[in-house]
Design a protein around this nucleic acid. Structure first.
Lengths: 334, 334
DNA sequence: CTGTTAGCGCATTCAA
DNA sequence: TTGAATGCGCTAACAG
């Protein structure tokens, strides 16, 4: 910038003023400065800019698990768009699986002076963020140890809707396949139970299946086992997109066709041999809301107490969830 | 840091030394400093650190299209992992569709003093990066106007393999559905042609279908049209994962079953009514290689002339690509 | 209106 | 071994 100043024969401050909107600079001078900028191909150094006291950087951090999961990818994309519109970049912390890795990643990001953090939190205490002086918005699930903004979907409602739908078809024995994550899955289960209670139907607890891992393979194995029991369920509610995949795979191999409802929509769900009924929400909106909220917090525009935004879930009927109870044992027509 | 210095009763320089490995500091002093650091919860300011002359920041930039496309998501995830292992963060520029937006995003990123750029380039000239003084690695396809490292898959080989496979089944009329991207798609087409030439089979140019847009809908429409012709193809090679989706959708609705081979694997490809044969490569490795290469460039370790890394493609037979020519007109058994 | 100056937080001299 | 001084590129406050 000093080069630009010399080139244009003006002072440093003047260049700075021009670069930042050119307020209070004579037109002619501004022209000269702009010319010099072009000639030298000058670009403002955002790093140095962010060093000034008070001034926050213009980047947000996004901390999440596996980008390969379309769910997270959607969040990333949406928040990226919103941030970009306000001239903010998004820094992705590399996140391993363990909570310890998450903490490290977050601190890394904080030390980079990001203006705010969006976090899809792992389990583990997040109290260490309390005094970091950076606004934080949690996405998809709340974190313990800190009271911050949170944007999520109506997990309990979604679980309830799924169960209600199956119960309405006359199903009485509905299995629920649960990933080992705490908050969201717990809520979905709660909704599931609530719907049963409302319908006056008792849940066979042996059909509440807690998986050791949250991947498709675990769900596949569990599904196979439960379907091969003497008293298999007539319907399955799968609590996660990846799990649904495993459930379907097992069912396909077994040639069995219980009703299936999955939580979260997924690509190609409508093109499978029998299109999959799901409870879905607007994932992109999750990311957008989070970014918007964080931007407002970072700019100081929003000083309300921590907000809690809950997005609704809706049922998308495609076929797999509308199978009657007596079709459960049937061999597929393949 | 100055607070830490005061707290520990030492000079500023000493604290800095401790923070950076503590070389040349008496053990006792170092202890005191570390204690002060803990008590104050001090964290080094990476921004200020990067301001020092010569010192590059410890973040890489990744510029790509749509994270919602699993192809890009895989690249992002993989490069993130590699970068993270070296303590680098990854900044994602928000990228719209237009080349102009891409340029803006890149310059934004450069002004943030990233240590290097990974770019999945859009069309348009990238010569403006030439003098930016930042190492650049292009991913998936080369850019014009600049000679830089490039990591990509063997598009031509993949196109050839797909066509060869179909030709071996006895197909003579193979349609190819092309997305409107230049480099990669062009190469795939070239491989497709080459295989035909080698087999001594002439291509019906009306089966070389150039789509106006690269989405599933366009492919669906085109597939419907070509299959309803008087002389439909007996096989279809779809040049992109999203296109394959559209092709399959159209075929399902039409109840037709020509052989289908897609370029790039995708989730659930093996679970569709007839599992989809694809030509696939290790996308994650694409991201990993790019990150590794960029890291080496950024650190100055690697000063070779621009490299060109090409990853192989392999055929994954699943069924759709093994259908004989005479099954093309058949109605599906649905 | 415009030039000058003082830090921002840190790593790195240079002395002591 | 350590403390103090310097400057990275920029903006804001203050003179002129």
């Amino acid at each position: 910038m000093i080069d630009v100043a010399r080139r244009a024969g003006v002072g440093l401050g003047t260049v700075s003023r021009v670069v930042n909107g050119g307020h209070g600079v004579r037109d002619e001078t501004a022209q000269r400065v702009r010319a010099a900028i072009d000639e030298l191909g000058f670009q403002r150094n955002e790093v140095a800019r962010a060093l000034r006291p008070g001034k926050k950087s213009t980047s947000l951090a996004l901390v999440l698990g596996d980008l390969t999961n379309p769910f997270y990818a959607s969040i990333a994309k949406a928040s990226l768009e919103v941030a970009g519109q306000s001239g903010f970049a998004v820094v992705l912390g590399s996140v391993d699986e363990d909570p310890e890795g998450e903490k490290r990643a977050i601190q890394e990001l904080v030390s980079r002076q990001v203006a705010g953090l969006m976090i899809v939190p792992d389990q583990g205490d997040h109290a260490f963020l309390q005094g970091a002086g950076v606004p934080v918005v949690f996405v998809d699930r709340p974190a313990t140890g800190i009271d911050a903004d949170i944007v999520m979907v109506d997990n309990e409602g979604g679980g309830r809707i799924a169960a209600e739908h199956l119960l309405e078809q006359g199903h009485q024995r509905i299995a629920i396949i649960l990933a080992p994550s705490y908050y969201t899955i717990g809520r979905r289960l709660r909704g599931f139970r609530r719907a049963h209670r409302a319908a006056g139907i008792e849940i066979d607890e042996s059909l509440v299946i807690q998986l050791p891992e949250g991947n498709a393979e675990a769900a596949e194995k569990a599904t196979r086992e439960v379907m091969l029991r003497a008293d298999p369920p007539t319907a399955i509610f799968s609590s996660t997109n990846f799990l649904t995949e495993g459930v379907l795979r097992a069912l396909g191999e077994l040639g069995r066709e219980p009703a299936v409802v999955g939580f979260d929509d997924f690509r190609l769900a409508d093109m499978l041999p029998t299109p999959v009924t799901v409870v879905a929400s607007d994932i992109a909106e999750l990311g957008r809301s989070a970014a918007r909220l964080l931007l407002d917090r970072a700019s100081g525009t929003d000083t309300r107490p921590p907000q809690r935004i809950v997005l609704p879930c809706a049922l998308i009927e495609r076929g797999s969830g509308e199978r009657p109870p007596d079709s459960a044992g049937k061999r597929s027509a393949r």
